[in-house]
């Protein structure tokens, strides 16, 4: 009697559990927003697009001074020139990037049903190039960063609007990115969330740890440390390396999925790239 009962109830229970375990992206986003809202009662959530400078008035003042003469301006100009130059077959980036081009940053990264994977804007640019008979660009190189800087600049003020469509592959990519974000890595045993959620707002030595909301809105970034404009995945590489994990390749599947998750968390926030950082 009891046995049959438990046999019947178990599958139902397991179903119920797995249904609650996988929260929808929208539930995740709302929970994360609520977390930061509670953690920083005096700070508008939208302010986190400025990263650590949203948390520290002194550093913010220094940074605003730096932004008076934006160190990424040359990259924007260079990117504009490259963007306008016809590709090998006479077509242009604008033809390839769709009607709204160059104002497209808000839609990336996106799920590509053809490949079943997440496509970043950098990858899109390279497939435009290859379709037009050009060589792909180095994902960490200055040419790609310049193009990205121009598109980011043109997309300023748009609000992040990415989707996780009703396709199990898209949902799996989102879940994978979320897992990456919360997974401890490296000899020092940190997840992204250890620093940007658990310790957010604390100082690591002299550095204030920024919130993950807004982490994707302002790329590419001119960093004083890099002395050049660089992409988001370069920052992933650095954040992985500093905990003594072997970093992944820029544009690897895991980093693209991570970018997908992180960008979804910033849905609705204003694009403000390129930006400068210490």
């Amino acid at each position: 009697m009891l046995r049959t009962f438990s046999h019947r109830i178990y599958p139902a229970l397991i179903l119920a559990v797995s249904a609650t375990a996988i929260a929808s992206p929208e539930e995740d986003r709302n929970a994360l927003r609520a977390f930061y809202e509670q953690r920083f009662p005096g700070i508008e959530l939208d302010a986190h697009v400025d990263g650590a400078y949203a948390l520290d008035a002194d550093k913010r003042d220094q940074w605003l001074e730096m932004e008076d003469f934006p160190p990424y301006e040359i990259a924007i100009d260079d990117g504009a020139d490259r963007y306008d130059e016809p590709l090998a077959d006479g077509s242009s980036y604008a033809d390839c990037l769709g009607n709204e081009a160059p104002v497209v940053k808000q839609y990336y990264p996106r799920f590509d049903p053809a490949s079943g994977e997440i496509e970043t804007l950098e990858q899109r640019i390279n497939s435009c190039r290859e379709a037009a008979g050009e060589e792909p660009l180095d994902y960490l190189g200055s040419e790609m960063s310049s193009l990205m800087a121009f598109i980011a600049y043109e997309s300023r003020g748009e609000r992040v609007a990415i989707e996780v469509p009703d396709d199990p592959r898209a949902q799996a990519a989102y879940e994978d990115g979320k897992e990456f974000f919360y997974t401890r890595r490296g000899q020092l045993n940190f997840a992204c969330s250890s620093c940007h959620v658990t310790m957010v707002g604390n100082a690591l030595r002299a550095e204030r740890l920024s919130a993950s909301l807004g982490h994707t809105t302002h790329w590419p970034v001119y960093r004083l440390k890099w002395k050049e404009v660089g992409p988001l995945h370069k920052r992933f590489i650095e954040c992985n390396s500093q905990v003594r994990a072997v970093p992944l390749e820029a544009q690897s599947e895991s980093y693209r999925n991570l970018e997908y998750f992180l960008t979804y968390m910033s849905n609705g926030m204003e694009l403000n790239g390129p930006a400068s950082r210490k």
Partner: peptide
């Protein structure tokens, strides 16, 4: 350790 802990005589300490 000072990246997270204050300690007597330590400089530039964090507060995690």
């Amino acid at each position: 350790c000072y990246s997270c802990h204050m300690a007597d005589g330590a400089q530039m300490t964090g507060n995690g």
